[in-house]
């Protein structure tokens, strides 16, 4: 089995780009290291790709981010900062792949983004934007498995149905690795910051995370909440157990959990509405 794991790891390492992941992320990276580049120049680069900037703005205004109405790319740059815009560009590109290939996972991720925001607000945690991105991308390993290992991915689905098991257990059994580890490899090979890599790589094993345990715990809980609410489809219907590490790190208790669940329940209809709107505009 670990042979299979090594094979997957090699292939992921070579996956420097995906069809719709634009060179723009790389360009922005290079430019933001250059002191002389102005925000306006960077905004111009993103605006030049009209399809991309439209998608990015739509996502910025989605319930998953919950920013106040942002109408232009330079607006976004000034109000949200380069880092947030970069992560928006990346998420909107990955979202496009999900939308076309794994619709249920797309809704699951969108919902996890909303849930993560609710958790962060309820617990008064800082750096909300990064949390949205981490939650939106947490199952990115599934996307890459689906794209690069089509047959294996189909076999996983069959195994889940036949044995009524967790998707992740099926992954371990068939592949010797899981989408969290795979997503972590991918995020690392794309030079994403640790604060995104860790929540992606450890969202099913919070105790494995290091410096970003709080973020990882938030994403872990967001995943559980959105599965409990049965919004979207992430590969299996089964709600994972809240890990003691997450409960401890975030100081969760019944009151907090029910507050989060109630607010999420209240927002589901807005997420559904947004998801329908997006499908309408695309179709």
């Amino acid at each position: 089995m670990s042979e299979q794991r090594e094979k997957i790891r090699e292939i992921i390492k070579e996956t420097k780009s995906l069809p719709t992941i634009p060179g723009i992320v790389g360009k922005l990276n290079a430019l933001s290291n250059d002191q002389k580049t102005s925000i306006k120049e960077m905004a111009n680069i993103v605006s030049a790709d009209q399809v991309l900037s439209a998608k990015m703005l739509r996502l910025a205004n989605s319930p998953s981010y919950g920013f106040a109405r942002i109408s232009t790319v330079s607006n976004a740059m000034i109000l949200l900062g380069i880092d947030v815009v970069k992560s928006l560009v990346l998420s909107s590109s990955i979202f496009e792949i999900m939308e076309n290939n794994v619709m249920g996972l797309w809704e699951h991720s969108l919902g996890a983004g909303v849930a993560a925001n609710i958790i962060v607000r309820r617990l008064n945690l800082k750096e909300c934007e990064e949390i949205s991105t981490a939650a939106l991308l947490h199952d990115i390993g599934k996307v890459i498995l689906k794209l690069k290992f089509e047959d294996e991915y189909a076999a996983l689905g069959k195994l889940v149905t036949a044995r009524q098991m967790w998707f992740r257990d099926a992954e371990m059994e068939l592949l010797g690795t899981d989408h969290a580890e795979v997503g972590g490899w991918l995020a690392t090979s794309w030079f994403l910051p640790d604060k995104l890599v860790e929540p992606i790589a450890c969202h099913h094993d919070v105790s494995k995370s290091g410096t970003h345990q709080i973020r990882t715990a938030v994403v872990h809980v967001a995943d559980i909440m959105i599965k409990a609410a049965a919004f979207g489809f992430s590969g299996d219907p089964f709600v994972p157990r809240l890990q003691p590490a997450a409960v401890r790190v975030l100081g969760l208790n019944e009151t907090i959990l029910s507050d989060i669940a109630e607010e999420l329940g209240d927002r589901l209809i807005d997420i559904k509405n947004f998801s329908l709107e997006m499908q309408e505009t695309d179709g």
Partner: peptide, 8 residues
């Protein structure tokens, strides 16, 4: 905690 969440 999970039983509680289910009830909610």
């Amino acid at each position: 905690l999970m039983d509680f969440l289910k009830g909610t």
